[in-house]
Design a protein around this nucleic acid. Structure first.
Length: 376
RNA sequence: GUGGGUGUAGUUCAGUUGGUUAGAGCACCAGAUUGUGGAUCUGGGUGUCGUGGGUUCGAGUCCCAUCUCCCACC
């Protein structure tokens, strides 16, 4: 259940109540693809770095260890020891991003596993079944994330099919919960808006899925190569037609600047691989901008990554040490870097919420929107 | 001590009968990365060709000396 606490223009300050705890929004969800944050972080590290929601991947966990095994082990919460809210992606995006050999029919998608190449079929019912076995707090609808650009006629047909898939997802989810097959009997379902960059398709699709009265609504199919101005425009176009009393989730976004822009346009929830992936490559977020810790200029730099940050890395270690760990390919370097970036993102959201609480989000936005994305 | 071999980028090496601005892998330097493949891609040569001299229009390449390291023999 989403509660709107306060607004500043389109920006929203709210909270989202779930059986696994309340999420203060706007919020960023930390990505733990296969039940762990890449780079060697556990659920306890997430807790210690002010993470509110862990995001796990349906597709990856289905392949390994198998959602049936996770169910036998009591579900994702018990398996990973994360006791807060978990959102599971539907697997739809992986089907389209990881697998080249795929066939889409009304029933679902047949594609090749990226692990061993075997053929896998996934449709709305399979996705719901897997997510029910995982026992996540929030399940995402199985959708088609189109490539950009896409032909208008294809995009329209795809949107229509995604609506039909969404209805099947809702029906299957209800069946699984009623028959006691879901690990989490209170599992929530979010719908996903598609429509490429065609405003009319986006609006029509949003109106259709809004009628289904789901627990939350996501905007998908963005940040897939289109110019960021185009992304912001689509967010604004869609936002106007999103239910005001439901939480809004912008999937896969993004940079700190992207998040500030999207919050300003009324988005509540985010997830992105950038903070963790960039950290693994030595790209670290700071309140001054982005640094590449591998750069030679940090070889003798005894200052912390970010003097304004109080994460484990910045409290204890120097840029010189972190650079050395990266150059020496020591696991600790990656772990500290990922920890720092996730801490940074979670604290970016904390400061956004504070700004909204105090009614000065616009000033906060103007101060940081360009600063945080620049390379220094 | 004698004989043979060796020396070119940080490193391992290539470099034609002497011919334009000495190349490759790795490393290194720098950039990209948006519902995660610790992946991948893009750009950059960073050099006293061991040293000194000689031959030549021209030397990494040929000649002499010298030094280094390796091998064999005494």
């Amino acid at each position: 259940m989403y509660h709107l606490i306060k607004t500043e223009n389109h920006a929203r300050r709210g909270c989202f109540e779930t059986v696994h705890g309340t999420v203060q929004t706007p919020a960023f969800m930390n990505v733990a693809t296969a039940g762990a944050i890449k780079g060697g972080l556990s659920a306890f590290d997430l807790k210690n770095n002010d993470c509110q929601v862990m995001l796990c991947n349906t597709y990856h966990l289905h392949l390994r260890p198998g959602d049936d095994k996770v169910a036998m082990l009591g579900g994702l919460h018990r398996f990973t020891r994360w006791n807060g809210p978990i959102l599971t992606d539907s697997g739809g995006f992986q089907v389209f991003s990881l697998s080249k050999l795929r066939k889409i029919t009304e029933e679902g998608v047949t594609f090749a596993s990226h692990l061993d190449g075997r053929r896998i079929f996934m449709g709305p019912e399979q996705s719901m079944q897997i997510q029910a076995n995982l026992g996540s707090t929030i399940a995402m609808a199985f959708d088609e994330c189109m490539e950009n650009p896409a032909e208008y006629h294809y995009a329209k047909a795809s949107c229509d099919r995604t609506v039909r898939w969404l209805k099947r997802c809702k029906t299957e989810m209800q069946r699984l919960k009623q028959s006691g097959q879901a690990i989490n009997p209170n599992q929530l379902l979010f719908g996903i808006n598609q429509g490429c960059c065609y405003d009319d398709l986006r609006i029509e699709h949003m109106r259709e899925i809004a009628e289904l009265d789901l627990d939350g609504y996501a905007i998908g199919g963005l940040a897939v190569g289109e110019p960021k101005e185009e992304m912001y425009r689509v967010i604004s176009v869609v936002e106007e037609h999103m239910p005001k009393d439901k939480i809004r989730y912008l999937m896969g976004v993004g940079t700190p600047g992207n998040i500030l822009e999207a919050v300003r346009r009324g988005v509540d929830l985010f997830d992105c691989v950038m903070p963790s992936r960039n950290a693994r490559h030595g790209h670290l977020n700071t309140w001054q901008g982005i640094i590449n810790i591998k750069n030679a200029k940090y070889e003798l730099d005894e200052s912390p990554v970010d003097s304004e940050c109080d994460c484990e890395c910045c409290r204890n270690f120097s840029r010189a040490y972190l650079r050395h760990l990266f150059k020496a390919d020591e696991m600790l370097g990656m772990r500290l870097a990922v920890m720092h970036n996730l801490h940074f993102y979670n604290h970016l959201m904390i400061r956004i919420r504070q700004a909204l609480d105090e009614g000065n989000f616009d000033a906060f936005y103007r101060r940081y929107v360009d600063v945080l994305d620049r390379r220094i």
